[in-house]
């Protein structure tokens, strides 16, 4: 468990260093995820070293978003000024994206399956 946590945090730190050094608009964690995927692919890192730690974090992923949501309370003034365009655009657009991506993927997947 500790080994797994150490590996995950090291990849996050590595990603962060790359992101700052190159001035990329990507957070260290996303770059760390890509690096870890590469490391697993080339078997520099073995899956069983990190599996337990990753499982522990991913099964509690929802909890980690709670503080991010609470942070919105600081912006209530900003939101109150233009609540209608913000709320309407956010709600409608979220459903539009799910419909576009979901329908498109569903159709493409059926087509791929039929071609096989």
């Amino acid at each position: 468990m500790i080994r797994g946590m150490a590996i995950l945090l090291t990849f996050q730190a590595g990603g962060k260093l790359i992101s700052s050094a190159l001035g990329l608009p990507f957070p260290g964690s996303v770059i760390g995820m890509v690096l870890l995927l590469v490391a697993l692919r080339f078997e520099w890192i073995r899956l069983d070293w990190i599996e337990q730690a990753a499982e522990l974090l991913l099964s509690h992923l929802a909890l980690f978003f709670v503080p991010a949501g609470v942070g919105v309370m600081v912006y209530t003034d900003v939101l109150a000024n233009e609540w209608l365009p913000i709320l309407a655009a956010t709600v409608v657009s979220t459903f539009v994206v799910m419909a576009v991506t979901g329908k498109l993927a569903d159709r493409l997947e059926k087509k791929t399956a039929a071609d096989d």
Partner: peptide
């Protein structure tokens, strides 16, 4: 609130890295 909230929020970072595991599997 943020003194403690930020500590929980921090765990999002390694969790995003951990997403490599289900992707690899």
């Amino acid at each position: 609130y943020a003194h403690g909230g930020d500590i929980i929020l921090f765990l999002l970072g390694p969790s995003v890295v951990a997403l490599a595991v289900p992707l690899y599997q």
